[in-house]
Amino acid sequence: VQTVGQWLESIGLPQYENHLMANGFDNVQFMGSNVMEDQDLLEIGILNSGHRQRILQAIQLL
């Protein structure tokens, strides 16, 4: 089972590990259960829309 940090590294966005972990997104399986939306990522400080889309697309593959 991948950690959130390993998963972010695999999609090329390791800089957001602290954003996700500090806001309770600390379990890759949980994130894959379709609980995260674009607005959630924006609210936790991921401002780059391309990065948000990449995260959301990768979540669909979990």
Rank of each mutant, 00 (worst) to 15 (best):
E17V: 11
L42V: 13
M31D: 08
E37I: 08
M21T: 13
R52G: 01
I44P: 04
G24N: 06
I46W: 01
R52K: 01
L47N: 12
G24H: 05
L13T: 02
Q15T: 00
Q29P: 10
S33N: 13
L42F: 10
S10H: 09
H19E: 10
R54D: 06
V1N: 09
I44S: 06
Q60H: 12
N34W: 15
R52N: 02
F30Y: 13
V1T: 10
G5V: 08
L42E: 11
L41A: 00
G32E: 13
N27P: 08
G45I: 02
V4T: 06
I55S: 01
D40G: 06
I55Y: 03
D40A: 08
H19R: 10
D26K: 13
L20I: 04
F30P: 07
G5Y: 08
V28E: 06
I44R: 04
S49W: 09
L61E: 15
Q2D: 08
L42H: 07
T3K: 08
G12F: 02
I46S: 04
Q53D: 09
E43H: 12
S10K: 09
L8A: 03
G24Y: 05
I44V: 09
A58H: 08
G5C: 07
S10E: 11
G24F: 04
L62T: 05
Q57L: 07
I11G: 01
I44A: 10
D26I: 08
Q57T: 13
D38N: 06
E17P: 01
Q39I: 10
D38V: 03
L56E: 02
T3R: 06
M21K: 13
Q57W: 07
L42I: 13
G32Y: 15
M31E: 07
L20Y: 01
N34E: 11
W7P: 01
P14T: 06
S49N: 08
E43N: 15
Q53Y: 09
Q60S: 10
I46H: 01
F30N: 15
Q57E: 14
L47S: 14
A58T: 04
H19M: 15
Q29W: 15
L20N: 01
S33T: 14
E17K: 11
L8C: 02
I59K: 09
A22P: 01
D26N: 12
M36Y: 11
S10T: 11
M21I: 13
I46Y: 02
Q6S: 12
G32A: 15
W7T: 02
F25A: 05
H51N: 01
H51Y: 02
N23T: 06
H51D: 07
T3W: 05
H51Q: 02
P14S: 09
L62A: 04
H51A: 01
I11F: 06
L13I: 04
N48E: 10
M36F: 11
L8N: 02
E43W: 05
I59T: 09
L42M: 12
S33R: 14
G12I: 00
S33Y: 10
A58I: 03
P14I: 06
L47D: 13
G32F: 13
L47I: 13
Q15S: 00
N23E: 06
Q57N: 12
S49G: 11
G32P: 11
D38G: 05
R54S: 06
V35M: 13
M36I: 12
H51M: 00
W7H: 04
Q57A: 11
G24V: 03
I55C: 00
D26S: 12
G50Y: 04
M21L: 09
L13C: 04
Q53L: 10
E37D: 12
Q57Y: 08
Q6R: 08
N27S: 15
N18V: 12
I11M: 07
L61I: 08
R54C: 07
H51G: 03
G24S: 04
I55N: 00
L61C: 14
R54N: 05
I44K: 03
G45D: 03
L62W: 07
I59C: 12
F25V: 09
E37V: 11
L56Q: 06
N23Y: 08
P14Y: 03
L56A: 05
R54Q: 09
H19N: 15
Q39N: 13
G24K: 06
L8P: 04
G5F: 08
W7M: 09
Y16V: 03
N34H: 14
H51T: 03
Q57V: 06
N23W: 07
M31I: 14
S49L: 10
Y16D: 01
G45N: 04
A22N: 12
D40Q: 10
I44D: 02
L13N: 03
G5W: 04
T3S: 14
V1G: 05
L62R: 04
M21Q: 04
E37P: 04
Q39S: 13
E17W: 04
S33A: 14
Q15R: 02
E9T: 13
N27W: 06
N27K: 11
P14R: 09
L8G: 01
I59V: 14
G32I: 13
F30R: 15
A22H: 10
F30A: 15
S33F: 10
I44N: 03
F25M: 11
N18W: 10
D40F: 09
V28P: 08
M36S: 10
L41V: 01
Q57P: 00
L42C: 09
H19C: 13
L20H: 03
E17I: 09
